[in-house]
Simulated scan of single mutants.
Amino acid sequence: MGGKYETIALRREGDILELRIHHKGEAARWGLWGGLHRELGLAFAEIASDPDLRALILTGTGDRFCAEFDMEGEMPPPMSPAVWDVIFREGRSLLNNLLAIEVPVIAAVNGPAFIHAELAVLADIVLASDTAVFADKAHGVAGVVPGDGVHTIWPMLLGPNRGRYFLLTGQEIGAQEALALGIVGEVLPRDALLDRAWEHARAIAARPPLAMRYTRIALTTRLREQVARELGPGLMLEGMAVLAGQGN
Rank of each mutant, 00 (worst) to 15 (best):
D130C: 09
W198L: 11
D130M: 11
G174P: 02
R20H: 05
V227H: 00
N96C: 09
V83H: 09
V187P: 00
E18N: 09
P76N: 11
L122S: 15
E102A: 09
V242Y: 04
G60L: 15
E186N: 07
G234C: 06
Q246F: 13
H151M: 05
G232V: 07
H151C: 10
E72C: 00
H37A: 11
I153C: 01
L219A: 13
V227N: 06
Q246I: 10
L168T: 10
E90T: 06
R196K: 06
L188G: 00
E172Q: 14
S93F: 03
V109F: 02
A201R: 04
R213E: 11
D52K: 12
A120E: 05
V145S: 01
E177G: 07
L58Q: 07
A55N: 14
A28T: 10
R196H: 00
D130H: 10
F134D: 10
P208G: 09
Y5E: 13
G149S: 06
L42W: 08
R229L: 13
R229H: 14
K137C: 02
E46H: 13
S129L: 04
C66A: 05
E199Q: 10
F88K: 11
N248R: 08
W84R: 01
Q246N: 01
L179S: 06
L10Y: 07
V83C: 11
Q176L: 15
I47F: 05
V133M: 08
T152S: 14
P146S: 14
P189V: 11
G111W: 00
R38A: 09
H37T: 00
V144M: 15
E225T: 14
L181F: 08
A120R: 00
H139W: 00
G111M: 04
E26I: 15
G182V: 07
L181G: 03
T7E: 04
Q246M: 11
P208R: 15
A128H: 00
I153N: 02
P233Q: 12
I101P: 10
V133T: 15
N96R: 05
L98W: 07
G163P: 00
H151W: 02
R11W: 03
F69R: 07
L181I: 08
Q176D: 09
G174I: 06
A107S: 14
A108L: 00
M71L: 14
P155R: 01
F88R: 15
